[in-house]
């Protein structure tokens, strides 16, 4: 399935994510994902929706190589990652930011250390790390909390740290799995705005959510999964 999308005017029309007939099976005869085919273009913002067990998280895991597809191909930036060796996974992940519902922050480290870790992995010099982390924390409005530890922050603040970490190395793709699942409506909008802004700056953003109100509000492209299959692919213009 190839879906031309809107909202990407002026950007390259090359698909950055291509999934061809991908299936993922954890047990013989049952499929978490089944024969899934889709394309996402550079700079696009896509919602991934569906009930629990629809395969949203599995698809995201395939995209950042936490799992391999049982069948099919996954092409990221022109490279097939379906059979990527374990040694090549870290290099792939350095180009992908990931945000989770439970934030996944290092509790023993401060806010700025949590964000810095994504740059330390790349071997960026400390002075540059400090500057980039500060600027990133400023973007998410947490520069005054940089020396705090995650546990002293609210849920919304922790998720902002997690987004800062995912974006600080300017990834081409940002994947978010229910990023607002633990947050109240006001904080949800705050977080979604940050993700939408990343998309405006050219990052391809894919957000798994079952919050239909959120999808209506932002009016972005929506990939609806059900039972591991792509049930619907609704372009962005229908909401705008």
């Amino acid at each position: 399935m190839s879906v031309g999308t809107t909202g990407t005017a002026g950007r390259s029309s090359d698909p950055i994510i291509r999934v061809y007939h991908a299936s993922k099976s954890y047990l013989p005869g049952t499929f978490a994902l089944h024969d899934l085919t889709l394309e996402v273009h550079r700079g696009e913002f896509v919602f991934l929706t569906g009930p629990s067990g629809a395969g949203k998280t599995t698809l995201l895991k395939l995209l950042f190589s936490a799992e391999r597809p049982t069948e099919g191909q996954i092409i990221l930036r022109g490279r097939n990652i379906a059979r990527l060796s374990a040694a090549a996974v870290p290099a792939l992940r350095r180009r992908i930011g990931v945000v989770f519902q439970d934030y996944k922050l290092l509790q023993s480290r401060t806010v700025e250390e949590n964000v810095a870790v994504a740059l330390e992995v790349l071997g960026v010099p400390p002075r540059e790390i400090r500057a980039r982390v500060f600027s990133m924390l400023k973007q998410v409005g947490l520069q005054h909390r940089r020396t705090h530890h995650p546990l002293s922050l609210s849920g919304g603040e922790q998720q902002r740290v997690s987004i800062a970490r995912a974006l600080v190395n300017e990834p081409e793709i940002l994947l978010a799995d229910e990023p607002t699942g633990n947050l109240d409506p006001e904080l949800t909008i705050e977080i979604m705005d940050l993700l939408a802004n990343a998309s405006l700056r050219g990052t391809t953003v894919m957000v798994a959510t079952h919050d239909l109100g959120l999808i209506d509000r932002y009016g972005k492209r929506r990939l609806a999964l059900e039972g591991g299959r792509l049930k619907d692919d609704i372009p962005a213009h229908r909401f705008t």
Binding site: F64, A87, P90, A91, L92, R93, R94, R95, V98, K104, L105, L106, Q107, S108, V117, A118, V121, L122, R165
Partner: peptide
């Protein structure tokens, strides 16, 4: 383990 998970998530190699 969480720490190792998170490091792996941001692209740290096993050595790193």
């Amino acid at each position: 383990r969480d720490e190792l998970d998170i490091l792996a998530l941001v692209g740290a190699s096993r050595t790193f």
